[in-house]
Each structure stands twice: as structure tokens, then as C-alpha cells.
């Protein structure tokens, strides 16, 4: 098993290299001159050339690429932002906790609520609970999150005055962003959980368990749920890798200085170091999330654990 983990970590490093290479090349190929964009319409050619030299973008592609790869992967230094002169890595780390709070918070909520709703819907298939849950989920997923965000601000900040309309001065400032960001995910998780439950409900081993005289609640808990977990965990894994990347709109509405905002401003201003840093960081986070998910599978399902340990493609019987 530990061999498996090591192998995966090595693969992760390779993936990050590839991500770095791709994002660097893409920004290199993007039309438009960052120096010209930053200095404005009135800058003379001379000044622009000077700025390009300062930014290092007048060098040939391979030189730039080499410098980028060395800096990023050997020194963990993404360089200074071309627009703000601050160290990109430092800024990224500073903003990370805020995005994580919103991302993880909303993911936990929507996994929790979504899964519970899905289990209720699945165990009462065809009855009113099922329809009600699915309607709720559909409404949540249809409402765009910034719209919901604004409604929540009006209700809780203006009308009731319980929560601040923006900003992160206090932890209370995170409540509305987390709620707004989580709603869409509820529907997805509910659907997953529901179909997972439906599949499991029809399973033979559930009938076996009932035939043993086990009471229904324990059948659900000990037999159905563990087996239904797999698709649910897949959904969680997917959600987890989106946690860091998924919140720019919410951050914008609530003025939260997080990673999403950072990437957005980087893209708008052609601030390539910011883009590189954010993208590679997202790749890192996603890879870790996926690795954790896969390890979770192994933990839950002995068949998969055997597969990993064997290291070969062993078909699960």
C-alpha cells in the first residue's frame, strides 16, 4: 500500500510539471503584449521595450521556459506579480485560507445536506419525500449563485442586520458567502446519493441481511450506506478539487480577497506570474484531493485496497 502512495506522489510531481509547462506555454502564446497593456495607450515604444526587458519577456521562449521551470519547481518561487510588485507566492498563501474557508465550508454543507437529502429520497423512492427532495434540489441548482448571494445580503444584512454585507473583518462575514456557494452543490450531491442508494437498495446482500432478521435501520446503516458511499465519495472528491477554483463570483460579490479573485485579476491584467501561480496551485490541490479520494476508496473497500497493493490491473470479482 505504501508503494502505491509513493507511486502516486511521484505521478503528482510529473503532473505538476506538465501543468506548469502547459500554462506557461499558453500564456506565452496568448496574443497581446502584457507590457503594452500595463503601461497604457500613451506609452512610447521605448518605454514599452524597457518594461519588457524588466519583465524578462523579451527573451526567447526556451530561455523563458527554462527560467520558469527552474524557479517554480526548484526554488518554489513564482516571482513577483507584474502589476503589483508583490511576491506572488506570498500573496497566494495569504489569500488561500479565505478561499479555503469558503470552499471547504460550502463543500461540507452541500455534501452533508445533499447526502442526507439523497438518502431520504432514495429510501422513499416514488413517495412524496422523494419528489419534495428532488424539487428542492432542482430549485437550488437553478438559482444562480450571485443572485442568491444578493438576496441573502438583502435579507440578512439589510433587513435583519444580523450579518455584514461584505468583507471578512469577523468570521461572521464568511457565513453568507459559504451559504451562497453551497446551494448548487446540494443538488448534485443529492442526486448522487439518491442513485447510489437506489442501486444499493436493490442489491442482493441487502435482501440477505433482511432475511437474517436484521431490523431496517441497521440494514440501512451497516449494509446499505457503506456500499452507497463509493459514488458519494466520488462526488466529494470532485467537489474537493473544485473547492479552490470554484469561488471567484462569490468572492467578487462579497469582496473577499481570495484566490479566485486573484486569478481573475491576473487574467484581466495579463499578469502572468499570478496566472501561473494560481493554475499550478489549483493543479496541486486537485491532485492531492484526488489522491485522498482514492485512498479513501481503499480504506472503505477492501477489494480496491487489494487492487492497489497488487499493483496490477486485477479485475474485481
Amino acid at each position: 500500500m505504501s508503494r502505491y502512495v509513493i507511486k502516486r506522489i511521484l505521478m503528482m510531481i510529473v503532473i505538476l510539471w506538465c501543468a506548469g509547462f502547459v500554462v506557461f506555454t499558453l500564456t506565452y502564446l496568448t496574443p497581446g503584449d502584457p507590457a503594452m497593456l500595463q503601461l497604457g495607450q500613451e506609452a512610447t515604444a521605448e518605454v514599452i521595450a524597457q518594461r519588457r526587458a524588466y519583465l524578462g519577456i523579451d527573451q526567447p521562449y526556451l530561455v523563458q521556459l527554462g527560467r520558469f521551470m527552474v524557479n517554480t519547481f526548484l526554488r518554489f518561487d513564482f516571482g513577483k506579480s507584474w502589476v503589483t510588485n508583490t511576491n506572488t507566492m506570498a500573496e497566494l498563501l495569504l489569500r488561500l485560507p479565505r478561499t479555503l474557508i469558503i470552499g471547504l465550508g460550502s463543500m461540507i454543507i452541500n455534501v452533508f445536506i445533499g447526502t442526507i437529502l439523497g438518502i431520504i429520497a432514495g429510501t422513499h423512492e416514488g413517495k412524496w419525500q422523494d419528489s419534495l427532495v428532488m424539487i428542492i434540489a432542482m430549485v437550488f441548482v437553478s438559482a444562480p449563485d450571485f443572485f442568491v448571494a444578493l438576496l441573502l445580503i438583502l435579507l440578512f444584512a439589510l433587513k435583519l442586520g444580523w450579518l455584514p454585507p461584505y468583507g471578512i473583518e469577523t468570521m461572521a462575514g464568511y457565513v453568507l458567502p459559504i451559504i451562497s456557494a453551497s446551494l448548487g452543490g446540494v443538488a448534485i450531491n443529492a442526486r448522487q446519493a439518491r442513485s447510489a442508494m437506489l442501486e444499493v437498495i436493490r442489491a442482493d446482500f441487502v435482501t440477505t441481511a433482511r432475511a437474517k432478521g436484521q431490523n431496517e435501520k441497521i440494514v440501512v446503516r451497516k449494509h446499505m450506506l457503506p456500499n452507497a458511499m463509493m459514488p458519494i465519495i466520488t462526488g466529494v472528491g470532485g467537489g474537493l478539487s473544485m473547492v479552490v477554483a470554484g469561488t471567484p463570483i462569490i468572492e467578487s460579490v462579497f469582496s473577499i480577497p481570495g484566490v479566485g479573485n486573484y486569478l481573475l485579476s491576473g487574467v484581466n491584467q495579463h499578469d502572468y506570474p499570478v496566472i501561473w501561480a494560481c493554475v499550478i496551485f489549483f493543479a496541486l490541490f486537485s491532485s492531492i484531493a484526488i489522491l485522498l479520494t482514492d485512498l479513501c476508496y481503499a480504506f472503505l473497500d477492501p477489494r480496491i485496497k487489494a487492487q492497489y497493493s497488487a499493483g496490477k490491473r486485477k479485475k474485481v470479482k
Partner: peptide, 28 residues
């Protein structure tokens, strides 16, 4: 009622199913 039946199942009457491949909980 259901509670009484739970006492019967497995104790007084037991059942064996057709497909052994899926009759057992794979995670236990």
C-alpha cells in the same frame, strides 16, 4: 408485525439466495 417477523427471520426460517456472487456484503 414487522418486529415479530424479525425474530422469525434467521432463527425460525432462513433463506439462501440464488446468486452467491452478490449475496454477501462485499465490505464485511
Amino acid at each position: 408485525d414487522e418486529e415479530a417477523m424479525q425474530k422469525v427471520r434467521g432463527k425460525k426460517a432462513a433463506m439462501i439466495f440464488q446468486d452467491p456472487m452478490t449475496a454477501l456484503n462485499p465490505l464485511m
